Amino acid sequence: MTQGCAAPAQTTRLPATVDLSNEAVIQGTVTRNGTPVPGAYARLLDSTGEFTAEVVTGDEGVFRFFAADGDWTVRVLAAGGVSVDTQVTAKVGEVAQVEVAI
């Protein structure tokens, strides 16, 4: 499985070590025609558009970021020159779900 920035495996299950009372999580799935897209790059950009983090989607097309409260952009880059931006708001204690169809 490909990983980016020493990130843990990107799976649909939130790791048991995550304490949502102290974390804001942005998690999502990248699909193409309803099929998960592994190996796509998910980038997290702050409210000014500045690059913050990047992970590679796992076998199930899943990506996950731990972020501060606020407004973020998830930019997905996939084979064939596909680039999709999705706006999301993160809040401590919640998992913000993002579904990206490319």
Rank of each mutant, 00 (worst) to 15 (best):
T29F: 02
T35D: 07
T17C: 09
D59G: 13
W72E: 08
G28T: 08
G58M: 06
A16D: 14
R75A: 11
A53L: 13
V88Y: 09
L20Q: 13
A67T: 05
D71G: 15
V62D: 00
G93H: 09
P8G: 13
V84L: 01
V25R: 08
Q10P: 12
V55N: 02
D46E: 07
T11N: 01
I26K: 08
R13K: 11
T52Y: 13
R75N: 09
K91E: 14
R43H: 11
E23C: 08
L20M: 12
T31W: 03
L44H: 06
D46K: 08
L44N: 10
V88R: 08
F65Y: 15
G39Q: 02
A9H: 00
T89S: 15
A7Y: 09
R75L: 11
R43Q: 12
T52H: 14
D59M: 05
T89K: 12
E54G: 05
S83R: 15
W72V: 14
Y41I: 02
R13M: 07
L45F: 10
Q3D: 03
V18K: 03
L45R: 13
R32V: 01
D19N: 12
F65P: 15
D85F: 15
D59R: 14
S47D: 12
E50H: 09
Q87L: 12
G28D: 10
V56A: 06
D59V: 10
A68Q: 14
N22F: 13
D46F: 07
A67Y: 13
Q27P: 06
P8C: 02
G61S: 01
N22W: 13
D69Q: 12
T11M: 05
G61K: 02
D71V: 11
I26N: 04
A68C: 05
S21Q: 10
T17M: 06
E50Y: 03
R64A: 08
T2G: 02
V55F: 07
L14K: 05
G34R: 06
A96R: 01
A78D: 15
V92E: 10
T2S: 05
E54R: 09
G28I: 03
N33S: 14
T89H: 14
T86G: 04
E94R: 12
V100W: 11
V98I: 08
M1T: 05
T52F: 12
S21M: 04
Y41E: 08
L14T: 04
Q97N: 09
Q87M: 10
T2C: 00
C5Y: 15
K91L: 09
C5P: 11
E94V: 07
A67E: 05
I26D: 02
E23Q: 13
Q10D: 05
N33Y: 09
V88M: 09
E50V: 12
S83T: 15
N33R: 14
A24E: 02
G39K: 03
G39A: 04
A90N: 06
V98K: 05
V74M: 10
G61N: 02
G93D: 13
R75V: 03
V95D: 00
T12K: 00
T73M: 01
T11W: 01
L14W: 01
S21I: 00
A101E: 13
V84R: 06
R75G: 04
A24W: 03
A67K: 13
L14C: 02
A96C: 04
G80S: 10
L44E: 09
N33I: 00
W72S: 14
A78I: 06
Q87A: 14
A68D: 15
G80K: 11
L14H: 03
V100S: 07
V95G: 00
G28S: 12
